[in-house]
């Protein structure tokens, strides 16, 4: 008995977002079918994986995380170099200390840090502000200028501050992370507003505000899956690749943080798996860029992706 092939005919395609400089550029998106599936023809792009660097020593990290990084945690430049040694496609620098309550560093101080990191590594740089709209609006344009020519991915731009963030990125040749609160219509709306400013659609990565495993990941999973199929069906304003801050989300939760526990088992595989499972699930939904905290979670994720890519 011959089994019939049931194929979907996808007519749309994700925009291909390129960040970094030759020969270390990476491409996210560009996919023309469902993730890791050869059934329908078309192609899928290997997800980009990044490791996170903080601009100052992180607070309240569990031992599993601090133990993995050792003494680089006080030095963003060394930390970034270690990310690359550990196999990250890109380095994601988070400007925690720009936060008004966590150092309130000036835009110029932030620019000096990002410049030092950008000069220290060849790999593409993702820059994340402090997630306070007004402060990011002040910091990110200055950071964009300092990084002129590095072709970075910069965010998070929200409906509140996108104008200044996008203007800075447009002027200095960067791409933008468009952040929206777990709502496909608001996400699409923000893409429209940004492209209306003449930001090319292939210079946007969508941050849909994921929840981690156990805490809302199912909403993110379905929104990303809807977005992916929407793009493949031809909706151009949903065709930007998705970025997921899996490290930031996964390590917030008690299941990842708690020390060795009789009921939950040892902290190390548990925390790492919490992050890796969050990422693998969202890769299956169709996201394109994954920003990790723990190098072993990144490694496990990439081993899984090797298998799914048929490598």
């Amino acid at each position: 008995m011959g089994v019939e092939l049931v194929q979907e005919r996808w007519k749309g395609k994700l925009y291909a977002l390129t960040i970094g400089r030759e020969p270390y550029q990476v491409v996210a998106g560009g996919d023309s079918t469902l993730p890791f599936l050869d059934l329908d023809g078309g192609s899928y792009t290997r997800p980009v994986s990044a490791l996170t660097v903080f601009d100052r020593r992180p607070e309240n990290w569990p031992d599993t995380l601090t133990g993995a990084w050792g003494d680089v945690l006080d030095n963003p430049v060394q930390w970034a170099r270690k990310c690359v040694e550990l196999g990250a496609d890109a380095v994601a620098l988070k400007l925690v200390s720009a936060h008004p309550e966590q150092g309130d560093r000036s835009p110029q101080e932030c620019a000096a840090t990002v410049k030092a990191v950008a000069e220290a590594v060849d790999q593409p740089l993702i820059v994340l502000g402090c997630a306070v709209n007004e402060k990011d609006a002040a910091v990110l344009p200055v950071v964009s200028e300092a990084l002129n020519g590095y072709n970075c991915l910069i965010g998070q731009a929200t409906s509140e501050n996108y104008k200044t963030v996008v203007a800075g990125c447009l002027a200095h040749g960067h791409s933008v992370i468009a952040t929206s609160p777990l709502d496909i219509n608001l996400a699409k709306q923000l893409n429209i507003l940004m492209t209306d400013m003449n930001l090319p659609p292939d210079r946007i990565a969508m941050d849909l505000s994921i929840g981690p495993l156990g805490y809302g990941i199912e909403y993110a999973y379905s929104i990303i899956e809807r977005k992916r199929t929407g793009a493949l069906l031809g909706d151009r304003m949903l065709a930007m690749p998705v970025i997921c801050l899996v490290g930031e989300e996964a390590w917030k939760v008690k299941e990842a943080q708690r020390a060795d526990d009789l009921e939950w088992g040892a902290d190390e595989p548990r925390g790492i798996l919490w992050e890796a499972v969050t990422a693998v699930a969202l890769a299956q939904a169709g996201a394109s860029i994954f920003v990790f905290y723990h190098p072993e979670a990144l490694r496990q994720f990439n081993t899984q992706i090797d298998a799914l890519m048929g490598k």
Partner: peptide
């Protein structure tokens, strides 16, 4: 049989089937 490995898996199953 390690709960540190099964807990994430069971949680994922719970999430995806809500």
């Amino acid at each position: 049989v390690d709960p540190a490995e099964i807990l994430p898996l069971i949680t994922w199953r719970l999430n995806v089937y809500t």
